[in-house]
Simulated assay, not measured.
Amino acid sequence: MSDVERHHCITCSDEGCEMTVLAVDTERVLALCEEADGSHSTVETALVGEVQPGDVLLVHAGTALARTGTPA
């Protein structure tokens, strides 16, 4: 599977985007994340389990679908 196929939703064809976790709200299972362009969004993280600042997530429609990187 190519990178293009892997980062597109098979249901709606939207792209997933990589976002870096800045802060975590464990009580509400949310994370404040940052895109490469500097914009911030709140992301639901239940599907990927516990996250921490610095983790890189593949996000689609406000939901983290996969962890693509972790802090060193």
Score class of each variant (00 low, 15 high):
residue 41 S to V: 07
residue 42 T to P: 00
residue 6 R to D: 10
residue 2 S to I: 00
residue 68 T to E: 11
residue 64 A to G: 07
residue 11 T to Y: 03
residue 56 V to D: 08
residue 54 G to N: 06
residue 60 H to M: 03
residue 34 E to K: 13
residue 10 I to E: 09
residue 55 D to C: 13
residue 27 E to R: 12
residue 18 E to Q: 14
residue 51 V to T: 14
residue 13 S to Q: 12
residue 27 E to M: 08
residue 56 V to W: 09
residue 21 V to M: 09
residue 66 A to K: 14
residue 52 Q to A: 11
residue 25 D to V: 07
residue 63 T to H: 04
residue 13 S to I: 02
residue 41 S to D: 07
residue 62 G to V: 03
residue 19 M to N: 07
residue 60 H to I: 08
residue 16 G to Y: 12
residue 1 M to K: 00
residue 60 H to V: 06
residue 37 D to I: 10
residue 42 T to D: 00
residue 14 D to A: 14
residue 34 E to N: 04
residue 4 V to M: 02
residue 72 A to P: 15
residue 38 G to C: 04
residue 50 E to F: 04
residue 67 R to Y: 05
residue 18 E to H: 14
residue 40 H to R: 15
residue 29 V to Q: 11
residue 70 T to Q: 13
residue 24 V to P: 09
residue 19 M to Q: 13
residue 3 D to T: 01
residue 19 M to H: 05
residue 5 E to I: 11
residue 58 L to V: 05
residue 62 G to T: 04
residue 36 A to K: 13
residue 29 V to G: 00
residue 51 V to N: 10
residue 15 E to S: 11
residue 38 G to F: 05
residue 69 G to I: 10
residue 5 E to G: 01
residue 1 M to T: 03
residue 9 C to S: 14
residue 45 T to I: 15
residue 4 V to W: 09
residue 12 C to N: 03
residue 52 Q to W: 04
residue 66 A to L: 13
residue 1 M to C: 05
residue 49 G to M: 03
residue 45 T to Q: 01
residue 38 G to W: 01
residue 66 A to M: 07
residue 4 V to Y: 10
residue 23 A to K: 13
residue 43 V to H: 02
residue 36 A to H: 13
residue 67 R to W: 05
residue 56 V to E: 13
residue 25 D to P: 04
residue 54 G to E: 06
residue 32 L to G: 00
residue 38 G to Q: 07
residue 9 C to H: 12
residue 21 V to C: 06
residue 63 T to V: 14
residue 59 V to Q: 05
residue 41 S to M: 09
residue 70 T to V: 15
residue 34 E to H: 05
residue 55 D to W: 11
residue 26 T to H: 11
residue 27 E to N: 11
residue 46 A to W: 01
residue 6 R to S: 11
residue 55 D to A: 05
residue 18 E to S: 12
residue 31 A to M: 03
residue 7 H to R: 10
residue 1 M to H: 06
residue 17 C to E: 12
residue 69 G to Q: 09
residue 47 L to D: 03
residue 2 S to K: 02
residue 64 A to F: 06
residue 57 L to S: 06
residue 57 L to W: 08
residue 31 A to P: 11
residue 33 C to P: 04
residue 20 T to C: 09
residue 37 D to M: 08
residue 52 Q to T: 14
residue 51 V to D: 01
residue 36 A to M: 14
residue 68 T to H: 07
residue 46 A to C: 01
residue 52 Q to N: 00
residue 55 D to F: 14
residue 5 E to D: 13
residue 28 R to C: 06
residue 46 A to T: 04
residue 9 C to W: 01
residue 37 D to G: 04
residue 54 G to I: 12
residue 55 D to H: 13
residue 34 E to C: 06
residue 52 Q to L: 08
residue 24 V to F: 12
residue 69 G to P: 11
residue 31 A to E: 08
residue 39 S to R: 13
residue 18 E to T: 15
residue 56 V to I: 15
residue 72 A to L: 13
residue 61 A to E: 04
residue 36 A to I: 15
residue 37 D to R: 04
residue 55 D to Q: 08
residue 18 E to C: 10
residue 58 L to Q: 06
residue 22 L to P: 06
residue 10 I to S: 05
residue 48 V to I: 07
residue 2 S to R: 00
residue 61 A to F: 01
residue 61 A to L: 03
residue 24 V to D: 06
residue 71 P to E: 08
residue 64 A to L: 11
residue 64 A to Y: 10
residue 47 L to T: 00
residue 69 G to Y: 14
